[in-house]
């Protein structure tokens, strides 16, 4: 205890000085009371006709961009209290029924979840499909830009076998490696490779981060790489990726997962909301219903977040300031 005491004795003058400094500095500080009062007034003025908005944030940057733009508009211009919830897709959908999630702003198609939660698909009705959000998902086979430049013919699937040996890796067991992606995504690559007679083996990267890193490294070090990729995705702004042509998509050609031999369709991305919330009288409902924007819009905000390292809130604010006309349309003004 003597040590403690001595230590404290030595620290005492310093503490005293610190206290004094804090008090003096305190006089110059902003007043929390004032802000509290103004918050109370704001709340009274807003009239509370938006209430809470629980926005699921699925784990990719494009989604984050959409979510924060809608959320920021709801918060700043409708006075909603927006709660962002970082969740994977499955969990988000489960949250509709419990009131923990109100909005999924970008959905790439989850037939299985729809079957469980959407009424006219036979589900419990906790989720409601709320229309397209304007973004179009493009899924396909991509190669890094340098490869397309040096071997332009690689962009046709018919020539892939010619290069299969080049794509071989320690994981692909003697065949060319095709890099599958995050298990969240719809992927038929194993079937496509089989049915088109390609000499490739799918190796799953297992995550979006792994896929992105692989493409970045491939472009930087001029490594051979072909894999599943998609747009909109912010990385397209940083490195060139080229899509490989597969037999074109026709209606029904992906109905039987084992027999798929065609390209992925372009997917209009959807909004999905909680039925209970949509049936309520929140002013946020119309905003979400009206929200629609383009891939370029989303890429823009995504670039703010990734390339410019802005926080999603700031990125959203910046875009809203620049595009108030589009925002007004969502607000029905």
């Amino acid at each position: 205890m003597r040590i403690t005491r001595n230590g404290w004795m030595r620290a005492r003058p310093a503490l005293a000085a610190a206290c004094l400094a804090l008090v003096v500095a305190g006089c110059g500080g902003g007043s929390i009371n004032e802000e509290t009062k103004s918050n109370e007034e704001k709340q009274a003025a807003a009239g509370g006709d938006c209430g809470e908005l629980n926005m699921a944030v699925n784990p990719w940057v494009g989604y984050e961009a959409s979510a924060y733009v809608v959320g920021t508009v709801a918060q700043e211009q409708l006075g909603c209290t927006v709660n962002y919830k970082d969740l994977k897709e499955d969990v988000s959908w489960q949250g509709f029924g419990t009131g923990e999630v109100d909005v999924v702003i970008e959905d790439w198609g989850h037939p299985d979840l729809e079957k469980k939660f959407v009424k006219d698909k036979g589900g419990d009705g906790s989720a409601t499909m709320f229309g397209e959000n304007g973004n179009v998902g493009i899924i396909g086979w991509y190669v890094p830009g340098w490869l397309a430049d040096e071997h332009p013919d690689i962009l046709d699937y018919k020539n892939l076998n010619k290069y299969a040996k080049e794509f071989e890796t320690s994981e692909s067991g003697g065949k060319g490696q095709f890099l599958g992606s995050d298990p969240s995504y719809v992927q038929f690559d194993e079937a496509i490779i089989d049915n088109l007679g390609l000499d490739f083996k799918v190796v799953f990267s297992g995550g979006e981060a792994a896929t992105i890193t692989a493409f970045e490294q491939a472009q930087k070090d001029k490594k051979w790489l072909i894999g599943y990729f998609w747009e909109p995705q912010y990385i397209h702004a940083e490195i060139p990726l080229e899509q490989v042509k597969l037999p074109p998509y026709k209606d029904g050609c992906q109905d039987d997962p084992a027999k798929v031999a065609c390209d992925y369709p372009e997917t209009p991305l959807n909004k999905v909301v909680s039925t209970e919330w949509a049936d309520g009288d929140s002013t946020g409902v119309d905003l979400v219903k009206n929200f629609t924007w383009t891939n370029d819009d989303q890429n823009q905000v995504a670039a703010y977040i990734t390339a410019d390292k802005m926080s999603p809130e700031d990125a959203a604010k910046k875009w809203i300031d620049d595009n108030q006309d589009k925002v007004d349309a969502w607000l029905g003004q």
């Binding site: 008090v23 305190g26 500080g29 007043s31 929390i32």
Partner: peptide
Amino acid sequence: VALWMSRYYTW
């Protein structure tokens, strides 16, 4: 003192 100040001063 620190508790009290942290309630009333923004900094």
